[in-house]
């Protein structure tokens, strides 16, 4: 069993880590990474701004908010984010998964995800795990009891394991395959160039 780190496209398999419990529904991408950090032209360096408005009491990120989950000593080093319904709603900014990844999260477990955010996670090797509401409750409870609780997220077996619990999760086979193998999606599509060309040749010019 390996605790693999997952830079984008490196592939992920089994992750073991601690959980940061963010007990809130409808966490939008403006909360995950506010607009003032979107002016960068690179993919890196967003982790320090993750959840900026909640995480810091000041605009300059000098005063951590002691009440925010990521600032609590018992959740330091957490690599699994646990949250609730409709996580990642709002804008399509891929800066959201970039900031989660850059902070050190490898897995986000939620009751549900917004569509664009979910796809952005897959494309950045950040594993989105969707569980039932009661299962999410059980995991929140386990972390409340023991913040150091080790959670295993096993993508090949599609299981989340903690304490003596084993919870299965669904993921589309092609997403699973791409996450495990870390495939170059563009490279795969470029192999279909002849089909793309054939499609283009059939289109009437007025279409564009």
């Amino acid at each position: 069993m390996s605790n693999q780190s997952s830079p984008a496209n490196a592939g992920i398999s089994v992750h073991i880590g601690h959980v940061a419990p963010l007990n809130q529904a409808n966490v939008d991408t403006d909360q995950i990474i506010p607009k003032q950090f979107l002016t960068s032209v690179t993919k890196s360096g967003y982790g320090k701004h993750l959840f900026h408005d909640w995480r810091y009491l000041d605009l300059h990120e000098q005063e951590p908010n002691p009440d925010f989950v990521l600032n609590k000593p018992e959740h330091e080093g957490a690599s699994i984010l646990l949250t609730r319904e409709n996580f990642g709603c709002g804008s399509s900014r891929e800066h959201a998964p970039w900031s989660l990844d850059d902070y050190g999260f490898k897995v986000v477990i939620a009751t549900s995800f917004a569509d664009i955010f979910y796809g952005n996670c897959i494309n950045n090797s950040l594993l989105p795990v969707q569980l039932e509401s009661a299962q999410i409750d059980a995991l929140f409870e386990a972390v409340a009891q023991d913040p150091a609780c080790q959670v295993v997220v096993d993508l090949p077996q599609q299981q989340v394991r903690f304490n003596d619990q084993v919870i299965g999760f669904d993921i589309a086979p092609h997403h699973k395959n791409n996450l495990i193998k870390g495939l170059d999606a563009i490279g795969q599509t470029l192999e279909l160039d002849a089909k793309i060309k054939a499609f283009e040749d059939q289109q009437p010019a007025w279409q564009y």
Binding site: K43, S91, S92, R93, E94, P97, I116, G119, N120, N123, N124, A185, I186, T189, L190, L192, I196, E200
Partner: peptide, 15 residues
């Protein structure tokens, strides 16, 4: 709407 990885995919493949 799409993410930036998909923007790159469309740039390269138009799909």
């Amino acid at each position: 709407g799409i993410g930036t990885s998909q923007v790159e995919h469309v740039f390269a493949t138009q799909t």
